[in-house]
């Protein structure tokens, strides 16, 4: 009786694990299945590298890929130095209690809903950008990237702090006993030893930036062409999905969003496996 219960429980746990992992596969399978007709029609090349011109029967998602790339990379450019500075403060430069308080605050910031960043962005930042550059509506790559950068900074900072925390105690003791000041300890011991973990943080944050929908949707202007400057509007893959969903189920237009889904999914997978690969390789000599 007892044994039977043990066995049933173990089977149930195993079943749950299988079920939840199968979701990962099911999502990809569904995307590919739904997007397949379009991919067959024009080939992958057409889909990924052709412009978006529905009336001419061209449903390439190239502009959206470029839009996603531009916005997320630019936001990373804003967020990286900011996160670096904040993690330095928390990790060693600020006095201990101040650093702890700042860390709590940053943890809290990760809980601010994305839609609120977008909402305030529209009414606060968009007019400023419009006035400042006197071009367009203010809904552009720059605006979206700025807000997105602020949004991913807390996450990236915490990733960095986490990799600082994982540095062996002995290294820190050695530096302290040799008379290193906090900033010296940071620059010459912590940073070199943590750089692999920090790279992981950057990659994961890029994943977050690429996967975000609302900020780009609300702030980037959503124009379907390749922008020539950061003051022009652009559309991301994620925003494209949100915007086209209303169309007819069978139309090729609708099918194209599954291509976006597949691209996003594969990107996620690349990020995940890159991070896993980097975590398994050992840290090297400085």
């Amino acid at each position: 009786m007892k044994k039977c219960r043990e066995l049933v429980a173990e089977r149930a746990f195993l079943l749950s694990a299988l079920a939840s992992s199968s979701i990962t596969v099911a999502i990809l399978a569904f995307m590919v299945f739904m997007g397949l007709p379009l991919m067959r029609q024009g080939g992958l090349y057409q889909l990924l590298l052709k412009p978006w011109a529905p009336y001419q029967g061209s449903f390439g998602i190239y502009p959206m890929i470029m839009g996603t790339g531009a916005i997320s990379l630019l936001s990373l450019l804003f967020a990286f130095p900011l996160s670096l500075g904040c993690s330095f403060l928390i990790g060693s430069i600020a006095p201990k209690p101040a650093g702890r308080g700042f860390r709590r605050l940053i943890e809290l910031m990760t809980g601010i809903p994305t839609v609120i960043y977008g909402f305030v962005g529209i009414f606060l930042l968009v007019p400023i950008v419009r006035e400042l550059f006197q071009r367009g509506s203010g809904l552009c790559i720059l605006t979206a990237a700025l807000v997105l950068g602020i949004m991913i900074t807390p996450t990236m900072t915490l990733f960095f702090c986490d990799s600082f925390d994982r540095i062996p105690r002995t290294y820190l003791d050695a530096a302290d006993a040799l008379g290193a000041s906090p900033v010296q300890k940071l620059l010459y011991v912590i940073l070199p030893a943590a750089k692999n973990g920090m790279l992981n943080g950057v990659i994961l944050s890029l994943g977050r930036a690429v996967g975000d929908t609302l900020i780009a949707l609300m702030l980037a202007g959503n124009a379907v062409r390749v922008a020539e400057s950061v003051l022009e509007p652009a559309r991301t893959l994620t925003a494209h999905i949100a915007l086209v969903i209303a169309a007819d189920y069978e139309s090729p237009e609708f099918r194209s969003i599954f291509a976006c889904g597949v691209v996003l999914y594969l990107f996620t997978m690349a990020v995940t496996f890159l991070v896993r690969y980097l975590s398994f390789t050992k840290d090297t000599t400085v």
Binding site: T24, I27, G211, I241
Partner: peptide, 17 residues
């Protein structure tokens, strides 16, 4: 690995699913 991927999938893709 499966759950790491699942955790990283953009929410819009899950919505699309």
């Amino acid at each position: 690995a499966f759950f790491d991927v699942l955790a990283g999938i953009p929410s819009i893709v899950i919505g699309l699913f």
